[in-house]
Amino acid sequence: MFDTSGARKLVEVRDLKMHFPIRTGLMRRLTGSVKAVDGVSFDIYEGETLGLVGESGCGKSTCGRAILRLYDPTSGSIVIDGEEIAHAPFDKLRRLRPKMQMVFQDPQASLNPRMTVAGIIGEPLQEHTDLTADQRLERIYELMDAVGLNRDFANRYPHAFSGGQRQRIGIARALALNPKFIVCDEPIAALDVSIQAQVVNLLEELQARLGLTYLFISHDLSMVRHIANRVAVMYLGRVVELAPRDALYEDPLHPYTRALLSAVPEPDPAIHDAANRIILQGDVPSPANPPDGCNFCTRCPQVMEICRRIDPDIQEIAPGRFVACHLYTKETEKTAAHAAQSTGA
């Protein structure tokens, strides 16, 4: 188990917000915004894998992309390796790019169909290093070896490869500049199961060898359990629970995490049939118009009156275990009284 106590924080995300404007009408007036990521905070320690899970549309990918500044975040702070990047200008960002890279979800779409494998893997080298063509080729071959691609493939184009091979090309490209931090945006979602295992094992092997830090975004809870050291659960743009892997899977605290984990398929049919599943009612509210109070209050099986009024803050209720839920708020009564007072006044 990864020990967070002594490790250095590589990535610190504080109150990250990514709102996309909604414009309507003839004048394209600003009439609202989709709050894809709405106040997310977490740390990633050097050498660990933080799993980011949640259902479709909860803002996982947006969060990962905003952290790498592929979007301009609405507000908040992102510190990677001691440098604030949330609002850094292009030049500073370009200098920092080699430290942080990304592996994309769709290996087909993330490779330029008009470039050879050598061109794709060599692009970051071309952008950030002064290697000569021969040295670059040498490095490209090294990277292809590292991800298990035959060197003869260097002249081929992405369409000639299978999904798993394409994902390896994407991983090789991400590794080209010796990054410290890699955001893996559902790297296995588009692959079939046997290839998923290969890619995940490759990622783990590279992490052990190169000391990489991953933010592993996925909706595959079993895979996250396999690869992650700590897991953050997102719901509608918020992190609702963040805990070490074993603690989270054995004793989920947030009602949403419980529902999510109870939905994981069980290989044993007897247990599968007997499983006491928590089936959530209704749909996820629109991120353009989230409910008052807790985002989860519309579907929560343990909803309380306070949940509909006050948004719970994320709190550390045990060492390393963060949860945003009124069930665990010790000061719920006080806050509620305070809120009632302030609204009354």
Binding site: L70, M102, F104, L111, N112, R173
Partner: peptide
């Protein structure tokens, strides 16, 4: 996504 990937390279 490949344009996004290029942007992530800088």
């Amino acid at each position: 996504e490949f344009v996004l990937a290029a942007r992530s390279i800088g």
